[in-house]
Computed example of a mutant assay.
Amino acid sequence: MAIEKNLPKQTSVIVRFTEWFANLSLLNMIWLLFCIPVVTIIPASESLFYVVNKLYKAKEKHPIKLFLSHFKENGWRNFKQDGYLVVIYVLFLFNFMIIRNRTDLPDWMYLFTVAISVLFVLAVLLSIYYLSLKTMIEMKPEKRWLLSFYLIFKYILSNLGLSLAIALIFGLLFLWPTLAIFFSMSLPALISIIVVERNFHKFNKQR
């Protein structure tokens, strides 16, 4: 930090951007590594959100070390508390695979596909809010889910922007799949934490 103060403004911005790029890339790679057993996706994601939140608030200089320690200390507890999310997303994946392999879909199946897609988007947004809020406030899981649901619809415009931003990120990752190794979760987590924290602060001020 002392070195950055003595650097020209433009150089300091470049240094900060490079640090962010490196930290998000390394975090995403270690997150992917910890997701390999599949059942560890939720604990790994919660640790990622926790560390990204600390980075966003400039409270951590060793993100990988913090990720490892947080996963070690809270991984099993987070799995027991939120592991059911893996089952929910596997069911979504199973439904999408069935629909995709059907060539002769009846009219009602198209409506079912639309309903499943809407539920999937809502589930993703709820999960993002849930994981982001977990880094900001301690409360019972069921209350955190209810608060997430409430904030999504209370600040619907900002959440539409959040959804579009995440969709844009995944669109870019689809065009350049290699980038998924570095930013598939870390970048969406950063954007989500910024939006959720602002909405949460607005909510607290209005109470």
Score class of each variant (00 low, 15 high):
residue 65 K to Q: 10
residue 156 I to G: 07
residue 36 I to T: 10
residue 123 A to P: 00
residue 27 L to V: 00
residue 154 K to V: 14
residue 17 F to V: 13
residue 135 T to N: 02
residue 158 S to E: 13
residue 94 F to E: 12
residue 95 N to H: 11
residue 114 V to N: 07
residue 205 K to W: 10
residue 38 V to T: 11
residue 59 K to P: 00
residue 120 F to R: 02
residue 136 M to I: 12
residue 149 F to K: 07
residue 25 S to N: 07
residue 164 L to N: 03
residue 189 A to V: 01
residue 15 V to W: 14
residue 70 H to Y: 15
residue 69 S to E: 15
residue 35 C to R: 01
residue 40 T to K: 02
residue 118 V to F: 15
residue 10 Q to K: 14
residue 68 L to S: 09
residue 189 A to Y: 03
residue 79 F to N: 04
residue 191 I to Y: 08
residue 199 N to M: 04
residue 188 P to K: 02
residue 173 L to A: 02
residue 105 L to F: 08
residue 34 F to G: 03
residue 54 K to R: 13
residue 169 I to C: 05
residue 161 G to Q: 08
residue 40 T to L: 01
residue 63 P to V: 03
residue 104 D to T: 14
residue 25 S to V: 03
residue 9 K to H: 11
residue 75 G to E: 05
residue 111 L to T: 13
residue 65 K to T: 10
residue 39 V to Q: 07
residue 197 E to S: 12
residue 132 S to L: 04
residue 149 F to R: 06
residue 32 L to T: 06
residue 38 V to S: 04
residue 41 I to G: 02
residue 5 K to M: 13
residue 31 W to T: 09
residue 7 L to T: 04
residue 194 I to E: 05
residue 40 T to R: 04
residue 113 T to D: 12
residue 111 L to K: 09
residue 12 S to N: 13
residue 50 Y to Q: 06
residue 189 A to K: 01
residue 17 F to R: 02
residue 78 N to M: 09
residue 116 I to N: 06
residue 113 T to C: 10
residue 129 Y to R: 00
residue 77 R to A: 13
residue 125 L to P: 00
residue 40 T to I: 04
residue 115 A to D: 13
residue 34 F to R: 05
residue 61 K to A: 13
residue 150 Y to W: 14
residue 181 I to T: 11
residue 30 I to E: 06
residue 172 L to H: 11
residue 147 L to Q: 03
residue 52 V to S: 02
residue 34 F to A: 10
residue 163 S to P: 01
residue 184 S to N: 07
residue 36 I to S: 05
residue 38 V to F: 11
residue 71 F to M: 07
residue 34 F to C: 13
residue 103 T to N: 15
residue 21 F to I: 11
residue 175 L to P: 01
residue 12 S to M: 12
residue 152 I to K: 00
residue 191 I to G: 03
residue 36 I to D: 09
residue 83 G to P: 03
residue 57 K to Y: 11
residue 44 A to M: 02
residue 12 S to L: 08
residue 74 N to G: 01
residue 205 K to N: 14
residue 73 E to I: 02
residue 85 L to D: 00
residue 29 M to R: 01
residue 168 L to N: 09
residue 120 F to T: 05
residue 111 L to Y: 15
residue 28 N to V: 01
residue 20 W to V: 03
residue 180 A to Y: 04
residue 84 Y to C: 05
residue 168 L to T: 12
residue 41 I to F: 11
residue 8 P to S: 08
residue 126 L to Y: 08
residue 81 Q to W: 01
residue 201 H to F: 12
residue 207 R to T: 10
residue 106 P to A: 09
residue 153 F to Q: 10
residue 198 R to L: 13
residue 171 G to Q: 05
residue 197 E to A: 10
residue 77 R to G: 06
residue 30 I to T: 11
residue 36 I to W: 06
residue 194 I to G: 03
residue 88 I to N: 10
residue 57 K to S: 13
residue 32 L to C: 04
residue 136 M to E: 05
residue 131 L to H: 11
residue 16 R to P: 00
residue 13 V to H: 12
residue 76 W to H: 08
residue 151 L to N: 01
residue 27 L to C: 05
residue 86 V to I: 08
residue 18 T to M: 14
residue 207 R to V: 12
residue 111 L to N: 13
residue 50 Y to C: 04
